[in-house]
Write a protein that binds this DNA or RNA. Structure first.
Lengths: 100, 100
DNA sequence: GCTACTGTTTCCGGTATGGAAACTCCGTCC
DNA sequence: GGACGGAGTTTCCATACCGGAAACAGTAGC
């Protein structure tokens, strides 16, 4: 199966969501609190970004108990992985030969 | 001189401005009309984005006559090139090992 | 001066963004 | 079971961004 054409995705492109997707793409699951601390976001801001990504079908949520507390675990859906990879390709296409 | 640390730049990151910077980085000078057609932007939108970049010191403007018309030529300032390259590095750092 | 073309600025409506605070849920503990 | 506290969510609000349309300004040529 050939890779689909790069597609610039405004939902993913927003700075914080790009970071969120990058973090999620590097792992199977990531805890809400870990993301929050890593990105330096408030709970409400992170929650809103995650809702945004979930509405797009890019992120799925799971609850699990750790340290006697229910916690939220996030992961990219297959569609989310595709969209993220596609967006990264779109970025690479835009910056082209730019020598970072 | 070692390359400066990657710096994520919100001014550059906006989708259209990222494209503008990419286009400018690939050439010495680019005509307003060429940019407009290439990016599919309205005159006002492009003008505003260029003002934004110029305010940040990233873009310089030059007027020259071609075909009996005064036209605007745009180019990245040295600072603009640095900031753009730095932003691209920041993006690469974020997406990390993502296989585009 | 008048016209035509190149950009710029203003006006306006729609939307994104983020912090603070109120609120919901749920597991723990007594 | 009821109180407590942590984990996220939603609401409220204020700010900023964004883009189209239209009015405006500057310049070249007649």
């Amino acid at each position: 199966m050939p890779p689909e054409a790069p597609a610039f995705d405004e939902v993913i492109h927003a700075p914080q969501r790009l970071r969120i997707c990058a973090a999620l793409s590097a792992a199977h699951k990531v805890e809400f609190g870990f993301l929050q601390e890593r990105l330096g976001l408030s709970k409400s801001a992170l929650s809103k970004h995650l809702s945004h990504l979930a509405d797009a079908g890019y992120v799925s949520q799971d609850r699990a108990v750790r340290d006697a507390r229910s916690r939220l675990w996030l992961s990219l859906t297959p569609e989310g992985r595709r969209a993220y990879a596609s967006h990264v390709r779109a970025l690479q296409e835009i910056v082209g030969s730019t020598d970072g």
